[in-house]
Nucleic acid binder design. Structure first.
Lengths: 139, 139
DNA sequence: TCTCAAACGCAACGATGTTGCATTTATTTA
DNA sequence: TAAATAAATGCAACATCGTTGCGTTTGAGA
């Protein structure tokens, strides 16, 4: 089964029509492999409507297909969700890592699960943004 | 020694002129106590130039006086740095916590220092954004 | 093929980021 | 205290992105 069919299947399971832009955007993100900057998505598209792209990304996030990563400089990255995410919500346990050398952003797993506790606070969810050197750039 | 003098001292140690806007912005942030939304800063100022405020916040961050917190919805918050931060860089060990009830964002310490390790990666810095219920809203 | 809710495309508006440049000002120095 | 100057301001100008409304188009099921 090729990627195009897989994408359409995925959209169907989330009750979304398989429109051209949606399929195209998902193909671009899947092809990029790591978390993709918003600009990169725009650059990869030929003709597109800005507002439609905006709504497309939002609904893909809402349905648990994509998740958004906001960097400190307000740059937005998008990445595929894991299978645990659904229309009901996101379930990410990974860390968002940005390499200072190659500037790539990726979703990585920690060696140990992260334990987080704050006095008097009830933590329901958290996100970790780490920076440093990725495996390739460390060599 | 009153707050005004303290603010001017702080600016001097970071080699920054004590201009009206800088002093005013720092007084607003200190008065707010917790992390302050960008909008709240604007609302608290009477007459101000948007670009000057933009540059003011940037240079205060650059000199280790403030730090910026980017929320997932692209809303920006600003908070005072600890004394460990300087012109040489930021040294935050705390967690940025957003209460889902009162929507306040604050810098809080964890019970245990956070240990983070990712296979093949070298981590030089990381930031944690947590959501849940703060002490006051839990009662 | 028909039907219709869903999605698109465009207008319109607002907030913020960013740079250049002439003018003003805080602080140092004479 | 006044002069000198590097720093900071204020404004123009431009760009990007977020967001909503609305008429038109279209994907997918009947």
């Amino acid at each position: 089964m090729n990627q195009l069919v897989e994408i359409k299947e995925l959209l169907k399971t989330r009750k979304l029509k398989a429109t051209d832009l949606r399929v195209e955007v998902l193909a671009i993100i899947l092809g990029f492999g790591k978390a993709i900057p918003y600009q990169e998505i725009q650059n990869s598209l030929q003709n597109f409507d800005r507002i439609t792209l905006y709504r497309t990304l939002n609904i893909l996030i809402e349905r648990g297909i994509l998740h958004k990563i906001s960097m400190e400089n307000n740059q937005s990255f998008y990445a595929m969700c894991t299978l645990e995410c659904s229309t009901m919500g996101h379930q990410h346990q990974h860390v968002h890592f940005k390499c200072e050398q190659c500037n790539e952003v990726s979703c990585v797993e920690t060696k140990e699960p992260i334990q987080l506790a704050i006095a008097y606070h009830l933590i329901t969810d958290f996100e970790v943004m780490a920076t440093g050197l990725c495996g390739a750039c460390r060599l």
